[in-house]
Design a protein around this nucleic acid. Sequence first.
DNA 1: GACGCAAGTAAACGATCGTTTACATATCAA
DNA 2: TTGATATGTAAACGATCGTTTACTTGCGTC
Lengths: 187, 187
Amino acid sequence: MAMTISDARARDADRTRQAILHAAQQIFAEKGFAEAGIRDITARAGVNQSLVSRYFGGKLKLFEAALEAALDARLMTDLPKQDFGKQIVARFTDETGRTSPLPLMFAAAADSEARAVAERLLRDRVFEPLTQWFDGEAAHVKAARFMMVSIGFFTYRDQLRLAEFAGSVDPALRRWLEAEFQAIVDD
Amino acid sequence: MAMTISDARARDADRTRQAILHAAQQIFAEKGFAEAGIRDITARAGVNQSLVSRYFGGKLKLFEAALEAALDARLMTDLPKQDFGKQIVARFTDETGRTSPLPLMFAAAADSEARAVAERLLRDRVFEPLTQWFDGEAAHVKAARFMMVSIGFFTYRDQLRLAEFAGSVDPALRRWLEAEFQAIVDD
DNA sequence: GACGCAAGTAAACGATCGTTTACATATCAA
DNA sequence: TTGATATGTAAACGATCGTTTACTTGCGTC
């Protein structure tokens, strides 16, 4: 499953770069920025540790590249507004979809430098496009509500383990979430 | 403002313990678990670094003690249900009140050991009492909704800096929050 | 086919951090 | 007053981590 450079001929800088980037997305999401070691990442990618500094300019730059590759506001803004609630929840709970960028966001929480990078990318790549998309005088409030509910949901489901049903989504909770997101675009 | 042992006579173990605990709450909240160093904490408390291991048994035990001292579910469960929304938002936005435990919760996010401690304390000291307090067949869903909205709010306001008004609370956002919390107890 | 450079590796460097150890001193009972 | 003990300090230990350096190897070109 993990993409290592062994999949291609040995000497291919682009392929190596991609292998490191892919491994970084996984390891950062799994262990957080501070606990994710360069040696962990390069080991999963199947390359030497020194290549992170060579190809990305250091751990922080690697994190920025990994997060930037995962953030995509179109995940939200290409949905129809009349059925926004159900579809956004479906996307948030879709197991088959692409890797969620949110674990990467949380990964940056405890490191001041990584958090600065994450906040900047989140603002430029998600919050601003979302505010534009809501497109009214209350657009910034709608964007804030969207961020709050989304952050709360993902944190509760993925970061905390508060109850036995935290891993999946309780049907009653799902209905509430759908109504909540729909109300944001309808208000 | 910071409580150091210089406020009392020099040799007082209890006073020293309290000074370390108080400094730990501040530093952990400011810098996160990983970035908060023993030397930072003991320096603010005005004591030697080795006393953390002596009095608390290590950094992790110190964090647990600091978080436990800050968590108090009565912050929520002693409010009247008929005016829950406005009063809980008032408490959450009260600048004059005690130190919020939530920065300490976030401080643990990126460290696996600290997160395990924080999750256990959050479940036992907040989530379970809250579920008991809601007291119905949908009590666990209500508690989940409460956690999601609270986490989203605090994360957005205190952790992210997404917009110029993120530091304070926009009036429209406040009205939405109040209605949101009130709906949880009314449903 | 030999040369030159890109690509990759191994090993060490330098700094930080939590913890432990050895030592100094203030407090209090006898 | 004196000695035992609690309290506090200074310094070093051991481990980890990000980064850099020196070196090796493979690919393309003339």
